[in-house]
Amino acid sequence: MKNFTRFGIYLLMPLFVVFIACSGDEEKFVEKKESVDTLPAKVKPDISAEVINNIIMSIPSPLEMATMLKDNGQGYDANLLNPSTNLIKYNTNYKIAFNIGVYSADLGYINIYEKTFSAMSYLQNIKQLGDDIHIGQFFDFETLKRLATNTKNYDSLIFISTDNFNKMDAHLRTQNRNELSVLMISGAWLEGVNIACQVAKLKPNKELTERLGFEKINLDNILVILNAYKNDKYFAQIVTEFEKLKQIYSKIEISYQYVEPETKEVNGQLVIVNKSKSTVNITEAQLKEIIEEIARVRNVMIN
């Protein structure tokens, strides 16, 4: 009997250790007790998780838009950001998830412009909101704080911020909380586009106007994943807001012409020489409508 017990311990102990060793840094997702908007069991997305994941993956990082603004010579404007004092308004899981996205896009804009003195309050907000929905462990606040106070580390700051956002998003999806991930991505997209719209309002240029026209593709994709949860009241409200934007975009035409690409080697690197073209037809009046509607929707969502 004694030998049998010892055998059992020998057998179970390594299995336990292996389980711990192989589980990586993933932590159990603990349901927020006071959540008032946790999806009821009967409200399930009406498209597959694979489709939702693929669309989430396809939405570009707001860093790209911020980089374009900076490279076009547009100056930094802190007034375009969601004020960090709005934090207290986000008191449900859905609002929290959406505004983690909004603040993350703001942080990206701050980082691209290397205005690290503005970064601290946004880092704190994202950390706090992340903790509220149990993904704060993927946001390395201490490292980011250290990098933000050392102005030579912009590249690391951008990399870790982006990587942390991706990890929070990935964790939500592995925990079957895709609806929160959808909100985070939607918030980041809306904020990134709003910053670009506000710049276009003051200093329009061809590249920026075209870029905002092409956002039709992202809006269509975001509406697909938001619509998947529209049986929920909060999602239904967002869909209604975004649908008004879609109506404006429906008049904008995008065309694509494929031309077979060529390849060449440059300094040992493979470079594609692409000759395909895409065009977007967007009028000044349409741009004005988009700018106004984006600002209106964003105002609803951050307040």
Binding site: I217, Q257, L270, V271, I272, N274, S276, S278
Partner: peptide, 13 residues
Amino acid sequence: YPSIQYPCSATGI
């Protein structure tokens, strides 16, 4: 090759 560089001339998925 360990990487691809793609200068994009056509916006799209």
